[in-house]
Simulated assay, not measured.
Amino acid sequence: MAIINKGMSRRSFLGLTGSVAAVAGLGLTGCGGSSSDEGSASGSTDSANRGGGVITAGSAYAPSSFDPASTGSAVGLGANWHVIEGLYGIDYHDYSTFNELATDDPKSVDDTTFEVTIRKGAKFSDGTEVTADDVVASYTACAASATYAPFFQPFESIEAKDASTVTVKTKVPNFSLLKDRLAIIRVTPATQAEEERAKQPIGSGPWMYDSISDTEITLVPNPEYNGEYAAEDKKIQYSILTDPTARVTAQQEGSTLVME
């Protein structure tokens, strides 16, 4: 659960984020609200409510691997949600799925064969286009990892039909959790090596990694992003505060807007 800094109203904080993905990833799904939270906060302005600020969070966890194909790191997973898209995403407010790189629901060819088309013009933050080969490589890495392999037991294969279309074959006819399982696959460039993904993965999401250290993770807007949820703020900054006292102090002093 996250705690919002009392120096800022819930409305101001939600306005400041400017990104649906940012709100979900910072853990606000567990926050409650009341009428007393809705008033103007000290220092908040109409301009801040339209975005353009810095989102600061106090993390209770230290970073380890950021490789989306295998990481179980809480802070790594949370930060990756902003940076790396899948074909589909999961809205952690209600666990529904929504389109990320996919343009629509999977198209059924038969009971066990489906096609998914990638968003036109989608690019990674390094400027390279997202292709079906990137999706296949990302799936292959996930399916081979001990962390995620069990989730893909119902899958037969994922292959590139053409540059912008993947063909998904399942062992289970009319597999009802198809989009949920596809959402686990976070797509990175096929050319990015495993050790590079672990240190600082490249994605096609609204944010990109600016820097990662033992004490701070910084994200900035991805200028190549052409999806629906563009970042409207200047920065997301995770302060690594594993000590509870330090984390609470930062929250009380206003150094962080939200903390775990």
Rank of each mutant, 00 (worst) to 15 (best):
I3D: 12
N5G: 11
K6F: 09
M8D: 05
M8L: 14
R11D: 11
R11H: 10
G15Y: 01
S19I: 00
S19C: 12
A21L: 11
A24M: 09
G25I: 01
G25N: 15
T29F: 10
T29S: 13
G30M: 12
G30D: 12
G30H: 13
G30S: 15
G33K: 10
S34I: 02
D37I: 00
D37Y: 07
S40I: 13
S42F: 13
G43L: 11
D46G: 13
S47G: 09
S47M: 09
G51T: 08
G51K: 06
G53S: 10
G58C: 11
G58I: 04
Y61H: 15
A62V: 10
P63K: 10
S64P: 08
S65F: 06
D67H: 05
S70Y: 04
G76C: 08
G76S: 10
G78Y: 08
E85S: 13
G86S: 14
G86E: 08
G89P: 04
I90K: 11
I90E: 06
Y92N: 15
S96I: 03
A102D: 04
P106C: 07
S108M: 12
D110A: 05
D111I: 01
T113R: 11
T113I: 01
T113Y: 00
F114T: 01
E115D: 12
T117E: 11
K120L: 07
K123A: 10
F124V: 00
F124Y: 09
S125G: 07
D126E: 02
D126F: 00
G127L: 00
T128L: 00
T128W: 00
V130H: 02
D133Q: 13
D133P: 00
D134Y: 01
Y139T: 08
T140E: 14
A141V: 03
A141S: 11
Y148Q: 03
P154S: 08
S157V: 04
D162L: 08
A163C: 07
A163Q: 09
S164Y: 04
T165V: 14
T165S: 07
T167D: 00
V168C: 05
V168S: 05
V168A: 01
K171E: 09
P173H: 09
S176N: 12
L177K: 14
K179F: 07
L182K: 03
L182P: 03
L182A: 07
A183P: 01
A183K: 05
V187S: 03
P189M: 09
A190Q: 12
A190N: 08
Q192W: 04
E194K: 13
E196T: 09
R197K: 12
A198R: 05
K199C: 02
K199A: 14
I202H: 00
G203E: 00
W207S: 02
W207C: 02
I212D: 05
T215I: 09
I217C: 05
G227M: 04
Y229T: 05
Y229S: 12
K234H: 01
K235Q: 15
Q237N: 13
T242S: 10
D243A: 12
T245H: 09
A250I: 03
Q251F: 12
Q252N: 13
E253P: 04
G254S: 09
S255M: 11
S255F: 10
V258C: 13
M259R: 15
